[in-house]
Design a protein around this nucleic acid. Sequence first.
DNA 1: CTGAAAGCGCTTACAG
DNA 2: CTGAAAGCGCTTACAG
Lengths: 339, 339
Amino acid sequence: MVSIKEIAEKAGVSVSTVSRVINDKQNVNPEKRAKILQMVKATGYVPNRAARDMVMKRSFTVGIIIPMTFNMFQRQLFSDIEHHLEEFGYHSSFYFVAMSQESETACLRRLKGEKTDGVILLHEIELPEFHEYLETNDIPSVIATFEKEQWKATSIHISEKEAACAAVNHLIMLGHKEIALICGKRYSFGNQRWQGYMNALEAAGISYDEKNVVFVDSYSIPDGMAGMKELLDRKLSFSALFAITDELAIGAMRYLEDQGYHVPGDISVVGCDDIEISSYTIPRLTTIRQPVSEMGHMSVSMLHSLITSESKMNVNIALPFTLIERESTAKPKKAKLLP
Amino acid sequence: MVSIKEIAEKAGVSVSTVSRVINDKQNVNPEKRAKILQMVKATGYVPNRAARDMVMKRSFTVGIIIPMTFNMFQRQLFSDIEHHLEEFGYHSSFYFVAMSQESETACLRRLKGEKTDGVILLHEIELPEFHEYLETNDIPSVIATFEKEQWKATSIHISEKEAACAAVNHLIMLGHKEIALICGKRYSFGNQRWQGYMNALEAAGISYDEKNVVFVDSYSIPDGMAGMKELLDRKLSFSALFAITDELAIGAMRYLEDQGYHVPGDISVVGCDDIEISSYTIPRLTTIRQPVSEMGHMSVSMLHSLITSESKMNVNIALPFTLIERESTAKPKKAKLLP
DNA sequence: CTGAAAGCGCTTACAG
DNA sequence: CTGAAAGCGCTTACAG
């Protein structure tokens, strides 16, 4: 592979000068610059990243911490982030981490070796050492899509509690009083959305009944099916469901269909997130839209300013969400679903 | 950040020795080794990747070339690949590339600077220079999920033609004779699956009629809706559809539902790929399953052996696919769909 | 505007 | 088993 030294020789200048033109610095004789550029082109020279990173003690890359089993919402988010990162001239390095201590430790270890300029967290890492490392080394970090006040990091998110509340409110406005919930306790947003559900009921004077709520292990479609099965098996009466993620809602609708129930005729369902597929399910899913692309864009620009500016102040930004009414919700039938 | 030199000083040895124990080489006094390991632990030392990469002239990372707008099938594939790469001790560097020359050029440029040990292609890059670069620099590369004989690379794929043929055959076996096709010309597999469709018809003695086929720009759900609209607008009669990807099929089903048609009552539909969501759509989609995780696993191990062994022989591996019969296909109704 | 020189943090013959 | 030394390909004061 051709090196800066070779270019210098071919162009009859020193490596310092070559370095200057490669990095667009001022003060280079135009003719020499032209000559150098010509040699670069002729040889197909591209600076060696490793050497550059080493001497500059930075890598121009930002780490994206993402769950191994990222869901569709996160998939959209990270595409956006990656895209904007490139615009800002960063490379991105993905750190897929599983739900295990070893995996988190491995992630930390890798982070230490790579000297990323900053990190964007799409995943809640538990390992305390991880956060200590970021803090003590002043590594700029932004949390995309959730809120974690204990962490010293800028965070971009919607108000999970209010979003959940809005979803449930939509059901209440429609006239529903018996509203089931499929929820989970993994990650902060699980608890926050659960909280929002309770707040909405309370504000409407409907008493909270834990019989109507099921907690599932994760937030995938199969979990949604399992959750709905559990709910149906309890033989209780409800006319609507709030599933705290779209995937959960899709699973629930699938199970309802299997059992011969009609959505929204028999049961209304609302999800949360507005992943792509929710516009195409049968019926189309009513949900809360998170402003994914704004979140992605903002995460990157906040991180960039954290990296480049002097002020290392962390902010907490709550973006607005929107209720998207589609086909999976309707007024309750007069007759109750189950006697 | 603590460096190898510091560790050497604290342990009272030379950097050579520290390097030896860090890299698990033989011939180190057990006591010194213990002392060094202890210092490493105490300081939290992790070798600087950039320095290491530079001197070793390799990066221990493999590049994964993937379309900016990767679909759900590719998403599953690349999770698998990333996972296995880690098992083999590689890092992975994602190269998202859009459908434009600039994007492909940028990808090549970055590749040159990063000196990846190898690359896995999930995307058909057009730029000739790209392939020239891989070839002339003997960069091990494997194509995951499609076949491109012109490229000098190992490839792991299913026989696209036969897979499409099997999908259409399923429809024929069911008794369908008027089978529409939603297809695309982008990427080789588009043409190959189209070919498979024609082969199946021919083998069954059904004449190919281009009235029954529509070519869409890409392979997403909205494209599937558009394709089905076009087909319906033509007012022709058909009782079944083969959509060359599951996403296309899902879009087609969505549009059929919107127009009041019943799947599979009025029209049967088969997709291809078997992405996750296809098990949960209403109705569940009949499709051809590609063995994604085997493909991912195999891509990685083939690449690894290309990187480590002497023999740089490229192979072409066609893996078996499976027809997954679900709910979206059935025998045709007696009466034709449209008069 | 330009070049010689030092240094970044590692690995790897080489000599002992 | 171990250390001194060279070298990887860059950037960056520094002196001119």
